[in-house]
Design a binder for these strands. Structure first.
Lengths: 204, 204
DNA sequence: TAGGAAACCGTACAGCTGTGCTGTAATGGC
DNA sequence: GCCATTACAGCACAGCTGTACGGTTTCCTA
């Protein structure tokens, strides 16, 4: 029988290469040749796992959501005081270390491209729903109310749902600014921004 | 002597074409051929006004800042109550009509590209300072304190300066969300977001 | 150990890219 | 009228792009 490789794992490795290239060269620099080189394979080898460039990029973009979701889920299982849990949840979406910085960079590139590339529309919607969900989790956690039943479910209290809306806008702004001006934000100042916002939220 | 054309005006027309193409096809779709076609000239004609593509894109991106600045200046001359003036100032940076939608789209594309294209770094810094300045103007206007002396000058009151910082983050988030999900935001809901934020600001 | 299937490579090709360059049309002062 | 000078058109060219495809290596199983 043939040489056996773990397809799932191989695709994840290739996705890593896509992220690396996009974060370094931008999404228009994510050519099949460059991705292949970053992954240490040939273009032919790359196409064994992805039929075309579009499929590769979409898969790589979706992988970001999965990556964030996994970390968020881990925080939900941990036993933490409400405010602290909210802080941790939100921090997973911000460029606080190398990994998250790459994720944010790739995500922004994909989001902006989705404005003119309809094949990324579904991804954009899914990511928006995911972000909103995390914001609802954070608000619920802060106020000690039950977490929403799942992605797409609103908070029972309309006022808190509005807080989640506002928090979502704030988080997107913080993401954009911290990604665009890394020199002006240390991880600690970013955390302080989130902390302050959560404080205002609960005082309100 | 030769045929005489208004160089300044001609360049502005070409910039319009760049904006149109970028908002429709993304920044990687802004090729010299497509821009030339959108402007109704040949590639050779285009190069008569811009030595290369990079110069064209940078000039077009800078033009957005000038466009917003002009509208902001007009509001500063008008005699309006503080809160209302702040609202108008901030609205000039949001995609509330076709013109501003195009500006926002182009600006986001350039900002994200600037993360990997150092030739846009200066533009990014300038735009950030401009946005921050408008936010400071809005905060000052809301609280009836003197406007800052110019771009780069902080508000005298440290608490208000922090409010401007927060407002800036919020505005960037609102810009990103409204540009990415135009279907979910009518101009009126966008205005309501700004109004609510200004209300929270003054109550604080 | 032989076979075969999957993994992977490298080239080929058409199409698009930015830019250089040459040719042409138009205009306003003499 | 003339013609210098600018505005503009369009082709040339090298380089990069995504994708198709035939060949080669590698490994497991029978």
């Amino acid at each position: 029988m043939p040489k056996v490789v773990d397809h799932q794992q191989r695709r994840d490795e290739l996705v890593r290469a896509v992220w690396e290239v996009i974060s370094r060269e931008g999404i228009e620099g994510a050519t099949v040749r460059r991705v292949a080189q970053a992954a240490g394979v040939s273009v032919g080898g790359l196409r064994h796992y992805f039929d075309n460039q579009q499929g590769l990029l979409i898969f790589a973009a979706h992988a970001i959501g999965r990556s964030v979701a996994a970390r968020v889920a881990a925080h939900l299982e941990a036993d933490l005081p409400g405010r602290e849990r909210a802080q941790r949840l939100l921090e997973e979406m911000l460029p606080l270390d190398g990994n998250r910085r790459v994720e944010v960079e790739v995500w922004l590139a994909c989001l902006v491209r989705s404005h003119v590339d309809e094949s990324l529309a579904e991804l954009r919607e899914a990511a928006w729903a995911g972000e909103r969900f995390v914001c609802r989790l954070a608000v619920a956690s802060c106020h000690g109310v039950p977490a929403p039943g799942g992605v797409g479910r609103l908070l029972a209290d309309a006022g808190l749902e509005r807080q989640a809306e506002r928090l979502h806008v704030f988080m997107d702004g913080l993401t954009l600014q911290t990604a665009s001006f890394p020199g002006q934000f240390t991880p600690e100042t970013i955390r302080a921004f989130v902390r302050e916002e959560l404080r205002l939220l609960t005082d309100e």
